[in-house]
Design a binder for these strands. Structure first.
Lengths: 301, 301
DNA sequence: GAAAGCTATAAGCTTTCCTTATGCCACTTT
DNA sequence: AAAGTGGCATAAGGAAAGCTTATAGCTTTC
């Protein structure tokens, strides 16, 4: 469902944050390289679109009202997300031409890499990072052929060929829309039922597919694809439309599960835990930038 | 620091999400009440501004490229934040005229209420909620005078007069910029040093001020305000400028601490833990909507 | 092979947004 | 008390962005 209109403007929210930071519209305008009247008008139209008075202009300086302070805090999360999007897009754009070349599986690229990159950028401001995406198998190939300095994958099979380190835990989840029979709180699905139900899955070569395959193989079973899709987003959209259950990383489904648009199905006898690993070539030494990134991921600094 | 340009457009990101959802530009355009060429041009300019190909238009339908799928996921967090901002702004706008009247201290309003309201809205779509903000003392007065159905406060003193329930834990943190002497990893500040250092504080009547006062009182001390400010945002801005240490909820400082722009000072003998409580009048029965909200906060559904 | 569905381009118009110029206000300095 | 400084708003004019309708081309489906 689209956002309810009117939608505020990102530049205006950013500008408001600068007003909070500098204490005046004028200085915020300078920081944004626009004229003071432009900033003034932007803020006024933001107030109009939200229907709130954000600034108290009665003194010499403009000061945030309580509502303004709230909007600034509410915007902080949005602007943080925008920073991540921008840094992620920049890394994708570089296509492997950079001082630190990262390759990541779709899930890792979508849910973890931008956060890492924003932090890395704040610690090492002038580093240039590129990001290459693929499924677990493709990432392995990129590392194998030295086209990236460090890779991130899910699943078990690949790491033995490389140096590796676990950087996070993840697990798969079988998800359905809330009106699906499996969505009932007391319903528990067995490996046998799961294997005999057509599922929306990632393609062979993906970490998700591998883990599900291994989990069912333990019972002498194998998954029955309703359809195979190359992107988590596409699977989510299909599951939401109700055509079949899907199997996805819990990272992928987190937001939808929290808002109740998807339900995680309880399973028995199906082991869907997995780890996310950094991998790098056994041949040479790790590059300093790659080491720095790994340290940041492990320590948080 | 302002965002790095060019900044993508929220409507375009929302539109891209709809393309992922519906599987075609045309249907996304319909969902957004714009013409198909308008949607097409918006998406093209989004691609240009990010420097990435987001859609594969080679078949009959447009389909997301891997980069497009990544951008959709990166956008999801942003759009979620925008939903929260919009619902929060709408609640503030109603100024107590609604079927569920919520009053909350600044910290709770800034960091928790919008999430609750988005969830509540998805469970009870046609509910109208208003939000009144103030410090802990003002919220108590609003509840006392029946101008809100439920209130949320920090600190200890107020609840005894009302029915109450703990809904979250929070604690205060003394924060400084990274170049401050107290920022050193091994530095530990005692109650005595803290009380003799001018601090940037919230005003009397705020939950933060009360908790700090109580913590120092246990040593026969009291805080020494460098300045008293009415908003968390303003305190943060001042602390970042380096004039003095500040005392803030850990919610407020979370983002800045994670990015390293603020450092939490280790303290000894200063008890800054506190709870966040829902409070409501002891007189009558709780309204059904208020009960629903409380259930949602406790259960998550 | 016709039909249906989807997307891109073009033309024309409206709206938005920015800059410069200017005036007023509040607070500070002398 | 008067002048100075920093700050905000309004107005006018011009540039740019965005939308709609009309149209044409492409792909998949029946």
């Amino acid at each position: 469902m689209p956002l309810s209109l009117p939608v505020p403007d990102l530049v205006s929210l950013d500008l408001l944050r600068s007003v909070a930071e500098f204490g005046s519209i004028r200085q915020a305008a300078i920081a944004h390289n626009v004229s003071q009247p432009a900033a003034s008008m932007r803020l006024k139209s933001l107030e109009k679109s939200l229907g709130l008075t954000l600034l108290d202009r009665s003194g010499g300086n403009a000061r945030l009202t309580p509502a303004g302070a709230a909007v600034v805090e509410w915007s902080a999360q949005i602007l943080e997300g925008v920073s991540e999007l921008l840094v992620g897009a920049r890394a994708l754009r570089r296509e492997g031409q950079s001082s630190l070349r990262v390759a990541a599986s779709m899930t890792v690229a979508e849910y973890m890499v931008p956060v890492w990159l924003v932090k890395l950028n704040s610690v090492v401001p002038d580093i240039s990072v590129s990001l290459q995406m693929g499924n677990t198998e493709q990432v392995a190939e990129i590392i194998r052929s030295q086209k990236a300095d460090i890779g991130f994958v899910e699943g078990w099979s690949v790491p033995h060929e490389f140096n590796h380190r676990i950087v996070a835990d993840d697990d798969l989840a079988v998800v359905v829309p809330p009106d699906h029979p499996w969505a009932h709180r007391k319903k528990v699905v067995t490996a046998k039922v799961l294997a005999s139900t057509p599922l929306i899955l990632r393609e062979l070569g993906s970490g998700a597919r591998e883990v599900l395959g291994k989990a069912l193989e333990a019972h002498g079973l194998q998954p029955l694809p309703f359809v195979e899709v190359g992107s988590n987003t596409a699977i989510k959209a299909m599951v939401l439309s109700g055509v079949a259950p899907g199997v996805l990383s819990s990272f992928v489904t987190k937001a939808e599960v929290e808002t109740g648009r998807l339900v995680v199905v309880k399973t028995r006898g199906v082991s869907l835990d997995r780890s996310i690993r950094a991998i790098w070539s056994k041949g040479g030494e790790q590059t300093p930038s790659a080491k720095r990134l790994l340290k940041l991921i492990s320590d948080g600094r």
